[in-house]
Nucleic acid binder design. Structure first.
Lengths: 346, 346
DNA sequence: TGTTAGCACTCGTGACCATTGAGTGCTAAC
DNA sequence: GTTAGCACTCAATGGTCACGAGTGCTAACA
């Protein structure tokens, strides 16, 4: 996989990728010798370019145009040539200024982060909330709304709040409900929702629930409360910025892009994948095997609180996006958001 | 305003509008005589068309093209010529099948309604949640999360639930919190949030709060809990369907449309306006004085529960949208959603 | 007097074509 | 190994031209 390239080839590949990133146009041998001062003539550069094309790092849209990097070319560039310098404290401060989360709720923070990500990167920002099933149980409370109707409030370890109205057959007093929630908060504390679910199933089968009315109520109530899969929420911001990019200049490609960003399921799947890993991850082009995202790249990072990963955020842009700028932004934003969640817990 | 048109002019205007709605292209005199069997020659139709143009109902993109209806033309068509037949029970049933709200929370129902609206109309669906400040207070509960941190749950008369984490200086026991919420639920029941806010301000100034610790806590807690304006939530679905429309075929118009739909503020303003009125409302083109929505029309209706209007929904499409199809869809969907909310309350 | 056929005119569209220029590959000389 | 030179390719640009849909006007007709 990791082919060896001579120093010269590397330099030229780097030059081509970087020129292409700013111009979005095929770059020719002449242009390279002009912009970068290799002591080489266009003809020599051409020889190298022919080799690089042979190896699959470059391709030409037609004979008389310059070369553009292929997916493989970008891959190599990112893996081996790109050096991402860390942000200076000053830059970090500058970046941080954009984020004002004071007193915001999670539901407000997330789209806001998306907006800022997109504003800073000039591409589209993505923020995905935690998967409900992987959150850790902390607290559950019940509120009697009317006869047979309860409001359930579930608070996860990471401070996420979910509420839901459920219907119940029998009318329970607020006191009974409190008893129930005390019981549950002790029993279920520290388990993930998936764990909670199987525990509930098991216990409901057990002998003793028959004789313990409260226990039975508690278990079945919480089962109902937690049963539905809450769909993953994803926030997409700045789709229109993507339309400014020359690769999406034609009506067809615009349509496809917007459709893809709008359907969200695809994005959720992609972000889900990156959920596992630590740090910044990069998906280049249709590496994701998703034809819809052809020509796009995704830079993501998961964010977390002390209890673990809670969600994923990132930037989606054209394959030729300015990685050296976007990667630190995504990285730092994830750190920042993690810090906010951390602070919120205490 | 309501100019008089001869029967013949009306017929021809109607024919032009309807042809234009399906073709999206300028319609010429010849085409009209072919498609509709007026016993008139193209030349006569041309005379009428010239008159209609004079009066501002039509315009021609250039001399040798047909005519297209102006905003005023559409306005007249909708006000005077269009007859919207009610849906048959069968159609209603058919439509209703698309909506499955069982057990869904408001936050899930709204985007779902948007998706269905857009799917049925083939244009973009809009659904806006109620304005927080105009909801009616029903219940407020506090949950101690940790030292100095409370989760506030607010339930409106219409069953909307909002929660928020607030920071408090003193550590209140769950018992104290219950006392507080009991007090508030009595005091504030039935008031809108705006009314609640001014009441809180007034009472906090009063003498007796000084001597009644609980009262003071209650008032200031609820003030903090209700102080922030929760941004209006609006769900836009099916933006990509709009891109299929020939009026948005050029890259520029696509970009503008997507930008407009993405920014949301404009849409919120428009839907806000329609919030007041009962029944279906139609905004044609830049009638809204919003250059951004040039070429678009908006068909909206507010939905309500027994306590009053709670939100607005609608369809945004090209000015030449199929009103006779869209209007009943929007109307019936609003009724349907109102019914769901009604049922939910009981 | 209202209707219509005829006709000259307008103007966007699409085909065709020549020109231009950026870029390539190859070869031969350095 | 490098480079200058050269023939070749091909997208893009812009100009010309024919076509056709549609118009407005006029004169003839019922």
């Amino acid at each position: 996989m990791a082919e060896e390239l001579s120093e010269r080839s590397q330099n030229i590949l780097e030059a081509i990728v970087e020129d292409y990133i700013v111009s979005a146009e095929p770059v020719g041998s002449r242009a390279i010798t002009r912009r970068h001062s290799f002591n080489l003539s266009p003809a020599s550069v051409r020889n190298v370019m022919a080799d690089l094309e042979e190896m699959g790092f470059l391709c030409s849209p037609h004979t008389s145009a310059g070369r553009i990097p292929t997916e493989k070319g970008f891959q190599y560039y990112i893996d081996s040539l790109l050096q991402i310098r860390d942000l200076s404290p000053r830059e970090k401060q500058e970046l941080q200024k954009n984020y004002r989360f004071n007193g915001m709720k999670m539901e407000e923070i997330m789209p806001e982060v998306g907006r800022v990500l997109s504003g800073l990167s000039k591409y589209a920002g993505l923020v995905m909330a935690p998967k409900f099933t992987s959150t850790v149980f902390r607290q559950m409370e019940f509120l009697r709304l009317s006869r047979g109707q309860l409001l359930v409030i579930y608070v996860s370890e990471s401070g996420l709040v979910q509420n839901k109205v459920i219907e119940v057959a029998e009318d329970l007093s607020q006191q009974q409900l409190e008893q129930i929630s005390n019981f549950l908060n002790q029993e279920l504390n520290g388990l993930t929702i998936s764990q909670v679910r199987s525990k509930l199933e098991d216990e409901l089968k057990e002998e003793r629930v028959r004789f313990d009315e409260m226990r039975k109520n508690a278990l079945s109530l919480s089962r109902v409360a937690l049963q539905d899969e809450v769909v993953n929420q994803i926030y997409v911001s700045g789709a229109s910025l993507m339309l400014e990019q020359p690769e999406f200049a034609t009506p067809q490609s615009m349509k496809r892009l917007i459709q893809t960003l709008e359907s969200k399921q695809l994005l959720i799947d992609l972000l889900d994948r990156s959920q596992q890993a630590q740090g910044v991850q990069i998906f280049i082009g249709s590496e994701s095997r998703q034809a819809e995202l052809e020509g796009c790249s995704l830079v993501t990072s998961s964010y977390s609180n002390p209890k673990g990963v809670v969600g994923t955020l990132g930037v989606i842009g054209p394959m030729r996006m300015d990685y050296s700028k976007v990667i630190p932004i995504v990285d730092f934003t994830a750190q920042l958001l993690s810090r906010v969640l951390d602070r919120d817990l205490e």
